[in-house]
Simulated scan of single mutants.
Amino acid sequence: MSLIVRRIGAACTIQDQGRDGYLDQGLSRSGAADLLALHEGAALLGQSPTRAALEMAGMGGDFEAMQDVRIALTGAPMQASIDGSSVPWNASHLLLKGQRLTLGAVLRGAYGYLHLGGGIVTEPFLGSRSTHLTAKLGGMVAAGDTLPAGPDSGDTGMKLTPTERFSGGTLHIVPSFQTALFDQPTLNRFEQTEFRRGARANRMGMQLDSGGEGFAAQGQLNILSEVITPGDIQMTGTGNPFILLPECQTTGGYPRIATVLPCDMSRAAQTPAGGTIRFQFVTLDEAATLQGAFQKDLARLSSRVEPLIRDPHDIPDLLSYQLIGGMISATE
């Protein structure tokens, strides 16, 4: 089973949960910018969240089914249709051989995801199918490419109400290696500032802008380069914060004021250009509680899936369902 890509946006890549354990070799995790979207797609298709999906940054594309294939659509919502008929987002659908799936621009958020029943089964490397553009592992999906799917069976026509995370909001943070280099008034101002996602953003990181002065650490020019991970918030020389994302570098010398909790990274990555973000420091105990609750919610996702009730006006082949077959005459 597979899809052929007929048209595709400029920044679409195949992603799973990424590669752990290679920081010492200069390779960051990569993986989906919105890991929650992977779990939602898995719940809709009744499969493992470790399977790879197509991550679409800002714009989708046109895809043709070479065989019947189950699909699910999660993450930032996009206009979606099959052979010109609109289909719901955050739902699973059956794409019949020869049918065309069309996905437009994101309506909210930043990253949309197309999941295939059986997952996208490209050749794995170092235990993952994730593209890592900065490390030149894989590349962007292009028109004419094939998205191969693994063995699959199961139902479609399911829906899931997503966790709202597509317009910014509050991100919980804990102190990082250089937090102590920022004086308390600066840390207080950081928490009180409303930031906007700037124009500079990709899978490495996203810049945040604010109307006030920048944020500087004491002795920041003498900071040694140290290991960094996704979620770290670096301060550039101009005092603008950058939230580091899955393809961030593995070491760096900019001061880090804090680190975003993993459970809030989907919200961070899905913040659209111009969307607002605030930060809130929490203790390590509070962070553990928030992260634990998030993991429990992931485990319960499959119990939240429910049948998708479609409007009969949106089903072009409604008559083929023989909805009145088997009726018994009331006069007999």
Score class of each variant (00 low, 15 high):
Pro49Ser: 01
Ser85Glu: 14
Met59Glu: 15
Pro307Ala: 07
Val121Asp: 10
Met206Ser: 00
Leu94Cys: 02
Leu181Pro: 11
Ser2Met: 07
Ile71Val: 11
Tyr22Leu: 15
Ser28Phe: 08
Phe63Gly: 02
Leu126Ser: 07
Pro241Ala: 03
Gly18Gln: 03
Ala57Pro: 12
Met78Asp: 09
Thr259Asn: 13
Gly118Pro: 02
Leu224Glu: 13
Thr186His: 05
Glu306Val: 14
Leu244Glu: 06
Val5Thr: 08
Gln322Pro: 08
Arg267Lys: 04
Glu286Ala: 09
Arg267Val: 03
Ala135Met: 10
Arg165Lys: 10
Met235Ile: 07
Ala37Arg: 02
Arg129Gly: 08
Ile315Thr: 09
Gly58Asp: 02
Asp264His: 03
Ile4Arg: 15
Gln184Phe: 11
Thr13Cys: 07
Pro316Asp: 10
Pro307Val: 06
Ile4Leu: 14
Ile82Ser: 06
Asp314Pro: 09
Asn90Ile: 01
Phe190Arg: 04
Gln17Ala: 12
Asp34Arg: 08
Ser48Thr: 11
Ala287Ile: 05
Glu213Val: 07
Ala57Thr: 14
Val106Asp: 04
Thr156Arg: 05
Gly18Arg: 00
Thr331Tyr: 15
Ala91Gly: 03
Phe281Ala: 02
Met140Gly: 15
Glu191Ala: 10
Gly75Phe: 04
Leu290Glu: 05
Asp20Gly: 15
Leu38Met: 06
Ala11Thr: 12
Thr250Ala: 10
Gln99His: 03
Glu123Ala: 13
Asp155Tyr: 08
Leu54Asn: 02
Ile315Gly: 09
Ser266Val: 00
Gln234Arg: 04
Pro312Lys: 03
Val227Pro: 15
His39Leu: 03
Ala135Gly: 08
Gln249Trp: 07
Thr163Lys: 01
Ala299Lys: 00
Gly326Trp: 05
Pro246Phe: 05
Met56Gly: 01
His115Glu: 10
Thr170Ile: 13
Asp285His: 10
Asp16Val: 05
Cys12Gly: 10
Arg278Pro: 12
Gly84His: 04
Arg165Gln: 10
Gly46Glu: 03
Phe281Ser: 07
Ile315Ser: 06
Thr122Tyr: 02
Pro124Val: 06
Ser320Tyr: 12
Met66Pro: 08
Val141Ile: 14
Thr146His: 09
Ala72Thr: 11
Arg6Leu: 14
Ala273Arg: 11
Gly212Val: 08
Pro88Glu: 12
Leu301Thr: 01
Asp62Trp: 10
Met265Asp: 00
Gln295Tyr: 04
Cys248Gly: 07
Gly274Pro: 09
Phe63Asp: 03
Gly104Met: 03
Arg70Pro: 11
Leu54Thr: 01
His313Asn: 11
Val141Gly: 07
Asp311Thr: 06
Gly118Ile: 05
